[in-house]
Amino acid sequence: MRVLISGGGIAGPALAFWLQRAGAEVTIVERSRAPRPGGHAVDVRGVARDVIERMGLREAIRDSQVDERGWALVDARGRKRATMPADLFGGEGIVAEIEIARGDLARILHDATAGAVDWRFGDRITALTPDGDATFASGGRERFDVVVGADGVRSGVRALAFGPHEEFVRPLGGRGAYFTVADPGDLDNWFEMFNAPGGLVAGIRPERGGTAKASLSFRTNEPWTRTDKAGQMRELRERFAGIGWRVPGFLASMPDAPDFYFDEITQVHVEKWRRGRVVLLGDAGYCGSPLAGLGTSMSLVGAYVLAGELAAAASPEAAFAAYQEQMAAYVKDGTQLPPGGMKAFAPNSSLMIRMRAVSMRMMGVWPMKGMLEKQFTKADAITLKNYAPAGLPS
């Protein structure tokens, strides 16, 4: 079986890991010229922890984990108004047991596949037919038995095979940026978050090596336009002008950050993840947004299930149908927003900010604790099949 995967982040290499062990000939095409370092912290939750154990990557991930004690909501003077220790919900809270920089996880997955998978950096798919004919920006054209779009929210494969971006991506009424702060001071290993009136949210979370990742998010229903980097920074400076806490330092550090990223806060909903020999995986087919918080876990679990079904089924089409059937309920739960969604995350008024702090202080107390446990146990809402009889190691 010849399989082409678009996207060299998390979902694509995880799928390649399993497929090449099942005997497939796998190619990954990635538009960047090398594995992308850095990125925000991602977490591995619930059943996804079982997947990385089966991959034999738990120790490699442990060596690159971010040490975070928990999450704290702070006021303008930096005083903690509500906290959620990392162990409050058995390692499944806002800060999970396994937190790792996205770039570090991508590097681990790349290293685990580099010797057995054909990695093609600096290239992308420019044309695609339902039966697996792919044309590349580099000029070549090849036929594959399966083509997988694992290329994120703005998936190029989805645009070519399923339809325009606007049909599947739902704005949630906000935008967000993140970037590295080189000298954040002593965070005592806490992920801190600050709310300001007008639907403004700032955050900072520790990284390995003494740096930290700053984030700036805000509510807006204005149409999204992808301005250049200078325009994006200008919008953030205007939105966050006069805001206290650490925000002035964030804005001052922003122009020198090597990894500045700014985008809409969105969800992706695709009714059927397959068209002919083309299938979607991870954020390209089902993204709940950073607010839902299960994107990495759904990518890892989805990769395991899709690879297992491709190894077991009589045809790619049958495998795709079984993959969606196995994943449907898990994805439905995993893409559901927490109560209040963007409005709860970024309150508009001082009164609502104070109410948020009060509600967060109640997180460990019944009945709030019971409500949140339902939210945080979604990561376990699937039972993994054993695909060993089909040739996939378990």
Results as ranks from 00 to 15, higher is better:
residue 30 E to A: 09
residue 130 P to F: 10
residue 329 A to M: 12
residue 7 G to E: 03
residue 390 A to V: 07
residue 329 A to E: 15
residue 27 T to S: 02
residue 220 T to D: 08
residue 89 F to K: 04
residue 171 P to W: 09
residue 335 T to V: 14
residue 392 L to C: 06
residue 285 G to H: 07
residue 347 P to A: 12
residue 239 R to Q: 04
residue 299 S to T: 07
residue 336 Q to D: 12
residue 199 G to I: 05
residue 129 T to E: 10
residue 259 D to Q: 03
residue 173 G to R: 05
residue 98 I to N: 04
residue 248 P to I: 14
residue 62 R to G: 05
residue 129 T to L: 09
residue 150 A to G: 09
residue 338 P to L: 07
residue 234 R to P: 05
residue 392 L to V: 06
residue 146 V to R: 03
residue 58 R to K: 13
residue 337 L to R: 07
residue 306 L to H: 03
residue 366 W to I: 15
residue 230 A to N: 05
residue 7 G to L: 01
residue 172 L to C: 01
residue 270 V to G: 05
residue 264 E to C: 13
residue 36 R to Q: 01
residue 253 S to Y: 07
residue 298 M to H: 09
residue 296 T to L: 04
residue 272 K to I: 12
residue 5 I to A: 05
residue 302 G to M: 04
residue 105 L to Q: 07
residue 150 A to D: 10
residue 97 E to D: 09
residue 292 A to S: 05
residue 180 T to I: 12
residue 315 S to C: 13
residue 187 L to W: 01
residue 210 G to C: 05
residue 272 K to C: 12
residue 144 F to M: 02
residue 241 A to F: 01
residue 379 A to W: 04
residue 76 A to S: 09
residue 382 I to T: 00
residue 357 A to D: 13
residue 54 R to M: 00
residue 304 Y to E: 01
residue 103 G to R: 09
residue 311 A to L: 06
residue 281 L to K: 01
residue 310 L to S: 08
residue 251 L to D: 12
residue 301 V to G: 08
residue 82 A to F: 13
residue 96 A to N: 00
residue 387 Y to M: 02
residue 95 V to D: 12
residue 104 D to E: 06
residue 302 G to A: 06
residue 75 D to V: 12
residue 369 K to H: 08
residue 280 L to Y: 02
residue 310 L to C: 02
residue 131 D to W: 11
residue 180 T to N: 06
residue 41 A to C: 14
residue 182 A to I: 10
residue 42 V to Y: 11
residue 223 P to G: 11
residue 52 I to V: 07
residue 200 L to T: 04
residue 13 P to A: 08
residue 59 E to D: 08
residue 88 L to F: 15
residue 306 L to M: 03
residue 263 D to C: 14
residue 248 P to A: 08
residue 285 G to L: 11
residue 212 A to P: 01
residue 245 W to E: 10
residue 247 V to T: 03
residue 35 P to A: 06
residue 365 V to N: 11
residue 135 T to R: 15
residue 388 A to L: 12
residue 381 A to Q: 14
residue 227 T to M: 13
residue 179 F to T: 09
